[in-house]
Design a binder for these strands. Structure first.
Length: 259
DNA sequence: ACCTCCCTGGCC
DNA sequence: GGCCAGGGAGGT
């Protein structure tokens, strides 16, 4: 994708293009442009283009990119098709349309959600002191603060639960009450959880909403220690895993092991 | 700093 | 036939 020119762009869903107002606008701002690089911060894909603008995309809940041949069969909910100058077709498929594709100027980027992201949990993990600073005085549960993407970015509901379990921190603990030791444990746990998830190609759930760009499912589901295991024995102590709701998100934890 | 909303497929 | 899943944005 990097270094390629977008020969044609077709956007077929209003909501996918919502940050640019309309599908036609998104198409016009992409077509003919060269993608200079492809990176990410948190859960946002960020690709600078040759005109100084930036292609930004987010998979939301059910979005995925595929690398296809123009002749490949179109799967339902394909909302964006980008034909590259090397004959490869990039497709964005997103049944629930929580995801988006957008083009931002520098100013628009500075006003977007990208600007509100804390340091990336994998690429630029914060030090204990930095994260401690961000959590100081915060009364919201640490689980909510992890999902917020402000103190640290890149963890979603599954990996937040996994990291808190590994670090033996109760997800309901107010963020400001975490000790430096706990923050260190959380950062260590985050690296272990993400390293495993990346190694396994990510966590494809039974709905197969998430797939790798080649269409393969990720294998990390079977490695999950606590997410989705409500009522089942904690792998450490054997007591039942509990499930509570924090910020309208399911949260799985062991009330015995996680203090 | 919190709550509500958006959206569809899958499952009870 | 209705509920659940959850990413971020926007409003209160």
């Amino acid at each position: 994708m990097a270094g390629r020119i977008m020969d044609s762009v077709s956007v077929s869903h209003e909501r996918t293009a919502r940050h640019n107002g309309a599908p036609r606008v998104l198409e016009e701002r992409l077509v003919g442009r060269r993608i200079e690089a492809v990176g990410r911060k948190g859960k946002f894909l960020i690709a600078p283009m040759d005109d100084g603008q930036t292609l930004v995309a987010h998979l939301g809940m059910s979005g995925r990119f595929s690398i296809s041949d123009p002749g490949d069969e179109l799967v339902p909910h394909t909302h964006v098709i980008i034909d590259l100058d090397n004959g490869v077709e990039i497709r964005f498929v997103d049944p629930r349309t929580f995801g988006f594709v957008a083009v931002f100027t520098e100013d628009e980027l500075a006003e977007s959600g990208v600007a509100r992201l804390g340091p990336d949990a994998w690429v630029e993990p914060p030090t204990v002191a930095e994260l401690s600073d961000k959590l100081a005085g915060r009364k919201a549960p640490i689980k909510a603060l992890l999902l917020d993407q402000g103190p640290i970015s890149g963890l979603g509901n599954i990996y937040a639960d996994e990291a808190l379990y590994l670090a033996r921190i109760n997800p309901l603990t107010p963020g400001g009450e975490l000790t430096d030791e706990q923050i260190q444990a959380l950062l260590d746990a985050t690296r272990i959880v993400l390293a495993g998830a990346i190694e396994n190609g990510g966590t494809s759930l039974d709905d197969l909403a998430y797939l790798l760009p080649d269409g393969q499912a990720g294998d990390n589901l079977e490695e999950l220690l606590v997410y989705g295991r409500e009522g089942l024995p904690c792998l450490n102590c054997g007591n039942p895993v509990e499930k509570v709701t924090i910020r309208a998100r399911s949260t799985h934890f062991c009330p015995i092991c996680q203090l």
